[in-house]
Design a protein around this nucleic acid. Sequence first.
DNA 1: TGCGTGACCATAATACAAAATGGTCACTCG
DNA 2: CGAGTGACCATTTTGTATTATGGTCACGCA
Lengths: 205, 205
Amino acid sequence: MMKAHTPAPQLRGPSDHDVRDQIVEAATKYFGRYGYGKTTVSDLAKAIGFSKAYIYKFFDSKQAIGEVICSNRLSTIMATVDEAVTGVPAAPERLRRMFKALVEAGSYLFFHDRKLYDIAATSASESWPSVGAYEEHLKALVLQIVRDGRELGEFERKTPLDETVNAIYLVMRPYINPLLLQHNLDNAADAATQLSSLILRSLAP
Amino acid sequence: MMKAHTPAPQLRGPSDHDVRDQIVEAATKYFGRYGYGKTTVSDLAKAIGFSKAYIYKFFDSKQAIGEVICSNRLSTIMATVDEAVTGVPAAPERLRRMFKALVEAGSYLFFHDRKLYDIAATSASESWPSVGAYEEHLKALVLQIVRDGRELGEFERKTPLDETVNAIYLVMRPYINPLLLQHNLDNAADAATQLSSLILRSLAP
DNA sequence: TGCGTGACCATAATACAAAATGGTCACTCG
DNA sequence: CGAGTGACCATTTTGTATTATGGTCACGCA
């Protein structure tokens, strides 16, 4: 697992510091096990053998820690999704795999890492940067796939690129955004298949 | 406004009875003004000059009353949507209008009738029959439009009909289901336009 | 007989005091 | 000077005693 705190939330003090990593490590464990709400900043402090006040030399707030943990987890998912599509030459197949991997990763998070899922949901509902970056990354991936597909003549080229990409993203969003995903979990796998097909039909040259 | 208690929830006693109508009338007023939660069954009873116990001669539960109020309101929306598409000959245009009317009605409900919107959201989250019937009706409308479009040669005919319809419905659902709509309200109008276009591209012969 | 109800119960909502938590800061110590 | 902290405060959260509410039923009365 890489470091991947992509959009660097509100930090304090030196950006690479052993104690910061210790905090993140402890938070990953505690937030994942007991949940964001049930974990107190003092818990984290105690876990690394410092006082609560010292935590605040490194993070602006408890939420800032939550954002890092959330970002990290979403980075892992992004890596999984990226991996699922790399090496696949055909754009249509890449789009299918992207959607599938996305839904699988989201479902997994929900069913096997519920506490972290809840943080992601909070992140989405309170517009933390974490989920925003996640969505942007995926939007960029869609753009990439559509662009490639167009170049290879697999997709039509009449519709304005940004409109196409945006519309496709809108179709996927209910299965990307944690706040929406939870209401689409039953049949999410089928939905991914059917919607992929619909999108691809709309992209046919 | 018509009667329209379409899927007749758990009733008691004679299905047409003046007192039943009075209850529904009072509930429409109270639920709409103070919300479902803040309205007590005694409030309704007092409003029509009977005792609380008498209400239960006509309805199985408070929720059953809520379902009727919710169904009625959703029936109004369905009527609006139906009206928006009737008389339009071209299937593509009908689909556009359907989506647009749907989003407008939903947004209106949210912004101008918030208390009733909340009931609809509850209905969706607890799977009352009301929202279920609403979704079914709209799914049927999509089927109708696609079928017509196919017959007129406006839409492709290769993809299995039910798959097409289901996929289209899945695209629209986040703007239909109240539980999902609330997270899509900003840009809902644009989304409806762009997604209509995407759907129509996917339907192109 | 059938419309209508007061009294009753289990559970849910509310109110509110007490405890816990997020966050700050002046300060210590090496 | 900089790593590290105890004491402190405003705001939430929690536990709980109390009230309100959904729902039933045996009964009254025309």
